[in-house]
Design a protein around this nucleic acid. Sequence first.
RNA 1: GGCCUGUUGGUGCAGCGGUUUAGCAUAUCUCCCUGUCACGGAGAAGAUCGCGGGUUCGAAUCCCGCACAGGUCGCCA
Length: 596
Amino acid sequence: MLKTHYCGELNKSLQGKQVTLAGWVDRRRDHGELIFIDLRDRTGIAQVVFNPQISKQCHEIAGQVRNEFVLKVTGEVALRPSGTENLKLPSGEIEVIVREVEILNASKTPPFYINEDSEVDENVRLKYRYLDLRRQRMLNNIILRDKVVQFFRDFLHKKGFLEIETPILIKSTPEGARDYLVPSRLYPGSFYALPQSPQQLKQLLMIAGMEKYFQIAKCFRDEDSRADRQPEHTQLDIEMSFVEEEDILKLMEELFTKMVETVKPEKRVITPFPRLSYKEAMEDYGSDKPDLRFEMKMHDLTDIAGKTQFAVFQKVIADGGSVKGVCAGGCANYTRTQLEELNKFVQSYGAGGLLTFALGGGGDIEHLTLDMVKSVAAKYMTLEQIQEIARRCGAKPGDLILAVAGKTKVVNKALGELRKEMGTRLGLADPNLLAFAFILNFPLFAWSEENKKWEPEHHPFVEPWDEDKPILEKDPGKVRAHCYDIVCNGYELASGSIRIHNPELQRRIFRFLGYKDEEVQEKFGGFLDAFEYGAPPHGGIAPGIDRIMMILSGSPTIRDVMAFPKNQNAVDMMLEAPSPVRKEQLKELHIRLSDD
RNA sequence: GGCCUGUUGGUGCAGCGGUUUAGCAUAUCUCCCUGUCACGGAGAAGAUCGCGGGUUCGAAUCCCGCACAGGUCGCCA
């Protein structure tokens, strides 16, 4: 090794020892005679001092050094002169008096600051990702990620899981996201697909008798990116045999609770994790991934609205829509401009507009009078109706009720987003709280307006509830699934289900979904055959590691917790991928490009 | 594909129709400096204001188109 110690591990106990450090110049402070250099490596920063009276030669070299030069220095660890200690640095009580220095490599001036956490255009950061990763915040994220993954591995191994790799070149499946395809050289016109998840493979591992499987699995989806979505991401993929829904939930609760205790003990977790049905989540928060760090529930006001003379309400209700509201505490004094901003906000999610009731004055809601209420709808409503709305929303004078009327789906989306927005504006979400929750009782099927048929809400291998099996074909919308999500702070962190292991039931589901037998055989044949050979009851789940990291590290995007992410347009700015390939490569793959 | 926002020296920002020779901070370069730690001081250099049109006596500034980026809707079993 070119070094005897790491910068971050230097402290008083090494006083008088000779050490050799190697790392990057974080900062240089040149006082003409004395030169101080903050030498940085993965573990931290150590101040090294160049004194011409100790070594004239070293001092001269230090004079030529610039930021990000790679240095090897040897010298004695010494206590800093009294009064010059730097308490901000872990190694701030000591410094290294340099007697030998070697420039291992020079560096160009970096295109952005490495040594401070300033905003930099993300494209520049991504192009020079290797420099971006030198920055403290990025390094911390990478180190935290390592700890988390290490924890998962240890935890699951202790629970008797086997870590098993599954192939990356697999078969394209018809449903779900768009596949990334890989052309086959040996079979003209045929393609492999990259896994959207190792779903079928992990189920086959259960049939193979592995009983408890996990994998840190790369998953690929050729869909548009988002702040929390990338073309490729990593899942902690888990599958177990002989389990019921409750077993998986218990395991996950322990996994996440202990993970946070281990890697981020300063974060608060509420146990047991709250359990919400999908229906409750949608009704109370307008989302299947509610941010439960604060309450501010949505309340259904449709029945009260129906009794008013307000035409907007009448029309919406006649069309089968709903009216819902939330209470923004203490916001009655919002200005016209602020309200207009919120109005625009809900409109951007497709709502017709935002209806507000500002409840002026003080006291309690029983003493409210009409002239204390500011709302365009007030003149079409009685005081009693407004009071009823206020009571239902839990509003008191001084509060602002925000209501949206329209199609139920739009109302949920728009008001749900507004709820989150108000939570942010009012600082309701405790930044140290990780509000985990299970979302349960998903419907097995959802009606597709687009395709005019029932489609699996999750995927076609999900086990329906036993008591709902009789009505599977008769009342498909009512069939509940053994499907569960884990949400945290407004993100979907994991999704899983108990799978169908009975081939007869599986065939029945496919028949119901409108697949012809040949079609099923062609698309899932190899997979389904396996179920004829003693498939154990099994189920699993797959937490998204990148999203976990986003939340744990407080990062605004998934890109900040991945070493080498792609930008929103799925381009790797550093490697410049994707890129055209040579004609011969295409020819070998039997691919000809079309002109359009 | 739609919508919103942004694009000004290396980086981050200001300027939003006319003394702006485009300003500030920081980085860079030169010189000075023995206790700094976001060291300090003096000076210098560095920008066809994303691209292309248009409006105007005059455009970084207003309008249109395009490109790129971010956010989002659709999409993501």
